[in-house]
Design a protein around this nucleic acid. Structure first.
Lengths: 219, 219
DNA sequence: AATTTCATAATTTTCGAAAATATATATTGC
DNA sequence: GCAATATATATTTTCGAAAATTATGAAATT
């Protein structure tokens, strides 16, 4: 793997995980020290992240981490519902037994990790992504999957603080595991309408939780 | 504007216009001579285009122009219909008088250029883009607009040979101007269902035309 | 006191060469 | 002759420094 690729993955991860804070300027000298490489691979990575909207660039003034806003979050989740509802219908239509089995496996692995420790947010997060990806895997549409990935990464930045807060004493009022199971059940039963409705509700709840949290934090 | 930005726009244009052929390897030395700049800005541009799927990269084997395929074209147009139908509904819902006026202006300017000369494909193309962009401009969803732009660029690559062929004696059996007018009429009348239906038909016809053409060229 | 001007410093952007890797060609052994 | 190996060439990737630009702060001016 090239340094450019490593830089891309590392910076992407650090932005999504909030280690590089929203709005923070990304100075070449700092990045060069932090990731132990020269400017060239770093700038290539930042160029890619700019297209993904995780990074904002201004000519001759360098790069900064893209800011967060309730508006963007709401837009991203609305668009996710649009794209993923359609992709899920297609996936249910085209999916074979391997696809179904992969969903069962992904959900099982996710639940294992959730019960094991709420502390290790990143292992849970990876499996959460894998579950949602598995649902859409059979949609046969590279472009819809591309947009799913783009929006998943965008919204992940907003969900992280909530996941971390979930590790604190205050228990979430949502039973996310039950939501995931219900979605999986509907999908495996090839009940597209129910599956799409539950998925949309799942995301709408997430949007409301994030929105409420951002309002309190900002106040 | 930085060289990196210029390189991005120039290479993007040349790929969409087919001056850089599908599948063609993009050697740094060649590009450096062609665009009269060093490797750094070129690689940054290629990194961005890679995310946009106009360029394909393989580690340590460089970049090449993304290949074309009927499958990708069909997927891109299907996804366009999904995203743009929704964006158009939102746009009709939120659009004000300025938005309506901008659509009328864009359509008028497009028709002027079409009647003026079918030869100058790129001026027509710029106005064609502007018209479709104007329809969605009021949707209030940066992400949907982002995806529109991404898919527009992708499908433009496929439409170009057809536009160029339209300049030859054989006249198109489609009346594209009438299709555009009908869409604009429905949009301006705030008849969302008709507008969405006509837009989808517009794109479906385009997909069929391209598909037929690609089949004959391949044969 | 506020604004402008100018020099200095910090930073981004770009280049040209070096390092790393892949591809092509020649050579050897069977 | 053909496969395997070694050598040479071509190409990508990366670095470190130079060039270009912006930001900072002090001095001068209104």
């Amino acid at each position: 793997m090239t340094l450019s690729e490593k830089a891309y993955l590392a910076i992407r991860r650090d932005i999504i995980q909030g280690k590089l804070a929203a709005g923070q300027p990304l100075r070449m000298a700092d990045l060069s020290e932090r990731y132990a490489m020269g400017f060239s691979p770093l700038r290539e990575a930042l160029s890619r992240l700019q297209v993904e909207r995780l990074v904002v660039a201004e000519a001759l003034r360098g790069f900064k981490v893209a800011p967060l806003s309730v508006q963007e979050m709401q837009d991203a989740i609305d668009t996710r519902i649009l794209v993923e509802s359609d992709a899920l219908r297609l996936s249910i239509q085209h999916g074979d037994d391997d696809w179904s089995a992969a969903i069962v496996a992904a959900l099982y692995a996710l639940n294992l990790q959730v019960e094991r420790s709420i502390v290790n947010v990143w292992d849970i997060e990876a499996r959460h992504y894998a579950f949602h990806r598995a649902l859409l895997a059979a949609c046969q549409s590279p472009w819809r999957l591309e947009f799913f990935e783009r929006l998943y990464a965008t919204t992940e930045r907003y969900r992280i603080p909530i996941l971390i807060a979930a590790g604190t004493p205050s228990p979430s009022r949502r039973d996310i595991q039950a939501e995931h199971s219900a979605i999986a059940d509907a999908v495996l039963a090839h009940d597209a309408e129910t599956a799409v409705r539950l998925l949309a509700e799942h995301y709408t709840r997430t949007a409301m939780t994030i929105s409420a949290r951002m309002a309190t934090v900002a106040a």
